[in-house]
Amino acid sequence: MNKLTVLSILLLILSGCSHNINPENQIEKKVSDYDLEKAVALIEPIDRPFFEISQKDEITRLEVADYRERLEQVCEPYGDTPSLDLLWDGGLYEDETIDPIPLVQDLFYPTIFHEGIEIESAIKTDYIDPTGDVFNKLRLEITIISIDEQLEDWRRIYLFKEHKGEFRFWFLSEGGNVPRDKNMLRAKSKE
Rank of each mutant, 00 (worst) to 15 (best):
T60I: 03
T60A: 09
T60R: 06
T60E: 04
T60G: 12
T60P: 07
R61Y: 04
R61C: 09
R61W: 04
R61I: 01
R61G: 08
L62W: 08
L62K: 15
L62S: 12
L62E: 15
E63I: 00
E63L: 01
E63Q: 14
E63D: 15
E63S: 09
E63G: 04
V64W: 04
V64L: 14
V64G: 03
A65K: 06
A65C: 01
A65Y: 02
A65N: 11
D66E: 11
D66N: 13
D66G: 08
D66W: 01
D66Q: 13
Y67N: 13
Y67T: 10
Y67L: 08
Y67A: 13
R68P: 00
R68A: 09
R68W: 08
R68H: 07
R68L: 14
E69H: 11
E69W: 10
E69S: 14
E69F: 12
R70L: 04
R70E: 13
R70C: 00
R70M: 11
R70D: 06
R70H: 11
L71E: 05
L71H: 03
L71D: 05
E72A: 15
E72G: 10
E72F: 06
E72S: 15
Q73T: 09
Q73Y: 08
Q73M: 12
V74R: 13
V74F: 14
V74I: 14
C75V: 07
C75R: 13
E76H: 15
E76Y: 15
E76K: 07
P77S: 11
P77H: 10
P77W: 04
P77A: 08
P77L: 10
P77N: 12
Y78A: 07
Y78S: 10
Y78C: 03
Y78T: 05
Y78G: 09
Y78I: 03
G79R: 06
G79Q: 00
G79K: 06
G79I: 15
D80H: 06
D80T: 05
D80A: 12
D80S: 11
D80K: 09
D80Q: 12
D80C: 03
T81R: 04
T81K: 09
P82L: 01
P82G: 00
P82A: 05
P82R: 00
S83M: 07
S83L: 09
S83W: 06
S83I: 03
S83D: 07
S83R: 07
L84C: 08
L84A: 10
L84S: 07
L84W: 01
L84R: 07
D85F: 11
D85G: 02
D85W: 10
D85R: 13
D85E: 12
L86H: 02
L86T: 06
L86R: 09
L86D: 01
L86M: 06
L86G: 11
L87E: 03
L87M: 15
L87Q: 11
W88A: 00
W88E: 01
W88R: 02
W88N: 00
W88Q: 01
W88M: 02
W88G: 01
W88F: 09
D89N: 13
D89F: 02
D89M: 01
D89Y: 08
D89G: 05
G90E: 04
G90H: 07
G90K: 13
G90S: 11
G90W: 04
G90T: 03
G90C: 02
G90M: 04
G90D: 01
